[in-house]
Design a protein around this nucleic acid. Structure first.
Lengths: 125, 125
DNA sequence: TATACTGTCATAGTGTATTATGACACTAAA
DNA sequence: TTTAGTGTCATAATACACTATGACAGTATA
């Protein structure tokens, strides 16, 4: 995995797992990679992965079965949807709006953005 | 100034100055606060401000007159517009699109975003 | 010339993310 | 019971952002 230099690795690992869950690539009850395994895969220290998992456990996204590993919580997806949606609308969107205003980006520049939003209008649930 | 914990302070100071220039609050040729002055204002070490200014000098946004201070470069605004626009479209937008898709955000959720974009359509230059 | 500003450099200390490694308890399966 | 897989904790080392502080040179002004 290639990490962004501006964001902490343990947070990027959390985001990556969360993304897998939101996309349905990992479902409720399913086991996620072991701390050691993911550390090797991502070429990262196991303590760093451990920190990501501990964070997600606090957030109620994953649960631990001692001696076995970590598993996706039953309500992980709905919880993540709620959390991330709120985070996006409250924290990220204001900064995005500000950038668009200052850079005077118009419909032409952001054509793909508008299309993406509109394609979500025709979906249910 | 209140800093974001997830981003380096010296980068946030750079962004803040860049924003002032893009908004026209500081114009070409104008002097920006001295390293020591801004450090006190922002309750930050002067070395941290120095690092921001050195970065902006490398980027050609500001220029130094020895013994006097830093001044906004003649082409700072156009250079910033070009740099930031490219950075936004190439680096930030893809991640924003991904979030919108995964979280299934629609026109209702992002009403204000669409409005902001459209209001830029009616501006020239 | 003296004073008070500018930026600049050097040094040392603090906090924290990340790494490296070893040790231990729990669980499942051979 | 042994073995291999889980997570967990403790320790030390490295890297880097940030702070604290002192010293020095250039510039403008009284």
């Amino acid at each position: 995995m290639d990490f962004n230099e501006t964001k902490n690795i343990f947070l990027q690992i959390r985001d990556w797992i969360a993304d897998q869950i939101l996309q349905g690539k990992i479902v409720a009850g399913e086991k996620i990679p072991s701390v050691r395994e993911l550390a090797v895969d991502m070429e990262v220290n196991r303590n760093t992965v451990m920190r990501s998992y501990s964070l997600m456990e606090e957030e109620g996204i994953i649960e631990n079965k001692r001696g076995i590993g970590f598993f996706v919580a039953a309500d992980a997806k709905s919880k993540l949807l709620k959390m991330q949606k709120q985070a996006f609308l409250n924290d990220e969107l204001p900064m995005i709006l500000h950038q668009i205003e200052v850079l005077k980006l118009n419909s032409s520049d952001l054509q793909i953005l508008i299309q993406t939003i509109q394609s979500n209008d025709h979906e249910n649930q």
